[in-house]
Simulated scan of single mutants.
Amino acid sequence: MSTQQGVKLQIESDHVVLDNGMLKLTISKPQGMVTGIQYNGVTNLLESRNDEIDRGYWDLVWSKTGSTGTKGSQERISGTSFSVIVENEEQVEVSFKRTWDPSLEGQLPSLIIDKRFIMLKNSSGFYSYGIFEHLAEWSPFNLPQVRIVFKLSKDKFHYMAVSDNRQRFMPLPDDRSEKRSKPLAYPEAVLLVNPVEPEFKGEVDDKYQYSCENKDLKVHGWICSDPTVGFWQITPSNEFRTGGLVKQNLTSHVGPINLAMFLSAHYAGDEMVLKLKPGEPWKKVLGPVFMHLNTTTDGRDPLSLWEDAKRQMAVEVQSWPYSFPASEDFPKAEQRGRISGRFLVHDWSGSSIFFIS
């Protein structure tokens, strides 16, 4: 699926629309919430029953310095200013920024947050990344979690895929309601006792069942069979995730919900929480990640979209670091160093010596 149309940007009073002829992405202005994704004849792949602030968004969890644990206050990151960073036929990049000043002390974490969205010509999807900055003179805080959330249409997306051997038709969000489920040991886990589709009766639904180690968490998402559409979140690198390659992270779950996790204390606890100290400056680029949309044109099985998504994931990984993000805070390939060589690991409990190239 391709088109010769260049990327177009339409700026309205309360929204901006990015359009490359393959899809249209609608974002609230200046808040930077994704309110609509139009693709393959579907007016909106997101859950249009939800309020506009509850369809596609960045959010975070923060707590006051000195606090312990992984919980805190949640902020759905809302921009206060909008600007166009790049606009030409090949690429559009837009910015939704929120700043901070001492009058917001205790209400929001002391961060400048710049949410960016990018659409490229002849690309079946869009990219998003965030630039987070904390100045040394600002009050410190803890930051347990940062993520992107997409809530897809529950009428359309029923099949979820996380890996080759972890994919299936999923219960509806309605099945988690009080009249259709029984609460278990913690809020995320419920027993389905009267689901809309009887085949799910007796199952336990729990979003943690679908977690994945970072090293394997490169693509996951949902499939709609009528019309045939796939929505996939592709993470091309682990350099901006916390916890390392074997850290577990959330993926997709009943909603249908799709997550891009950047900072997360899940499965690790308080030691994984980012804790800024007094007088400590901090700046971090999170992403870009790619939201890939695909379809079939030859009557193929809709589940073949998973194989196509994996091929696109390989393309994105091979393209890292991307050359197109406009922020000077995202170093391009020619601005990065390279390390090569061998590690010598001596096992002092025995006589083994390991060479790792």
Rank of each mutant, 00 (worst) to 15 (best):
Glu213Cys: 04
Gly243Leu: 05
Phe240Lys: 00
Gln233Asn: 15
Leu184Ala: 12
Gly269Trp: 11
Pro281Asn: 10
Cys212Ile: 14
Phe169Gly: 07
Leu286Trp: 03
Asp270Met: 08
Pro183Leu: 11
His266Phe: 13
Thr251Met: 06
Pro187Arg: 14
Gly202Trp: 10
Lys182Leu: 14
Val285Lys: 04
Ile223Phe: 03
Asn165Arg: 11
Leu250Lys: 08
Pro227Arg: 11
Met261Thr: 05
Ala260Asn: 14
Val273Glu: 01
Tyr210His: 12
Asp164Ile: 02
Pro183Arg: 10
Asp174Pro: 05
Asp206Trp: 09
Thr235Glu: 08
Asn249Trp: 00
Ser181Asn: 02
Asn194Trp: 03
Ala189Lys: 14
Ala185Met: 13
Val285Ser: 06
Asp175Met: 06
Ile223Asn: 00
Met272Leu: 13
Ile257Glu: 12
Lys201Asn: 11
Ala260Glu: 06
Leu276Pro: 02
Gly230Ile: 01
Lys218Gly: 14
Leu192His: 02
Leu172Thr: 07
Gly243Cys: 05
Trp282Gly: 00
Ser177Val: 02
Ile257Arg: 01
Ser163Ile: 03
Val162Gly: 03
Ile257Asn: 07
Val285Asp: 00
Leu263Asn: 01
Ala189Pro: 07
Phe262Glu: 11
Pro227Glu: 09
Leu259Val: 06
His266Thr: 10
Arg176Val: 07
Leu263Val: 06
Gln167Pro: 02
Glu188Lys: 15
Asp206Met: 10
Pro227His: 05
Asn194Cys: 08
Arg180Ile: 06
Phe240Leu: 00
Val190Phe: 03
Ala260Gln: 12
Met261Asn: 13
Val246Trp: 13
Glu197Ile: 12
Phe240Ile: 05
Pro236Ser: 09
Leu172Val: 07
Pro183Tyr: 10
Met272Gln: 15
Tyr208Ser: 14
Tyr267Gly: 08
Lys207Pro: 05
Pro236Arg: 03
Leu245Trp: 12
Val162Cys: 06
Asp206Cys: 15
Val229Thr: 11
Ser211Leu: 07
Trp222Gln: 00
Asn258Pro: 02
Val273Asn: 04
Gly269Val: 11
Tyr267Arg: 12
Thr228Val: 15
Gly244Ser: 13
Lys218Asp: 08
Glu280Thr: 05
Asn258Glu: 12
Gly243His: 04
Leu274Pro: 04
Leu192Cys: 07
Gly221Val: 04
Tyr267Pro: 02
Leu184Met: 15
Phe262Cys: 02
Trp282Cys: 00
Val254Gln: 02
Met261Lys: 03
Ala260Lys: 08
Met170Glu: 13
Pro195Ala: 07
Leu250Gln: 08
Pro227Asn: 09
Lys179Leu: 14
Asp270Thr: 13
Asn165Pro: 01
Val254Phe: 01
Glu239Gly: 04
Phe240His: 13
Met170Leu: 07
Asn214Met: 04
Gln209Lys: 14
Gln209Trp: 05
Leu276Gln: 05
Thr251Asp: 01
